[in-house]
Amino acid sequence: MRRILASTGGTVAGIALLIALKPTHTAPPARAAAPEPSGSTTSAGKTTGGTFTGKVVHTRYGPVQVKITVRNGRLAKVKVLQVPSTRGPEPEIARVAVPQLNKAAVAAGTARIDTISGATYTSEGYRESLQSALDKAGV
């Protein structure tokens, strides 16, 4: 039986990281990264746009830092400033997990997705899946 049991004490890479972003300037509230699902993207009336640089988060794979751009209250772009080395035992955290999370989060216009529902995947398919990325981000 293959088991990975881990307890974490802090917010780590990927999606979870995005909600920990601190604005580098004063314009937009960080709320813009996680709008309410009310149908109106500017329900607060103040979310416009801006660039936010996340703090460096130390994960078991190494330091991770991202910068996001919010436009019209919507997550428009994610730039990965720092990712763990692509050498080492878990290179896919950088090559696969982070880009997939970014793409999904941008597409959904939200900064936080906790888990993924999709047609049953095999163990092999899981490795390339978004859920795998989320698990890696959280572990």
């Binding site: 597409a107 936080r112 899946s129």
Partner: peptide
């Protein structure tokens, strides 16, 4: 918050 994977492109979230 649960993302529904797009069956046409599983790296995309089609619904929440």
């Amino acid at each position: 918050r649960i993302g529904v994977a797009d069956p046409r492109d599983r790296t995309r979230i089609a619904a929440v």
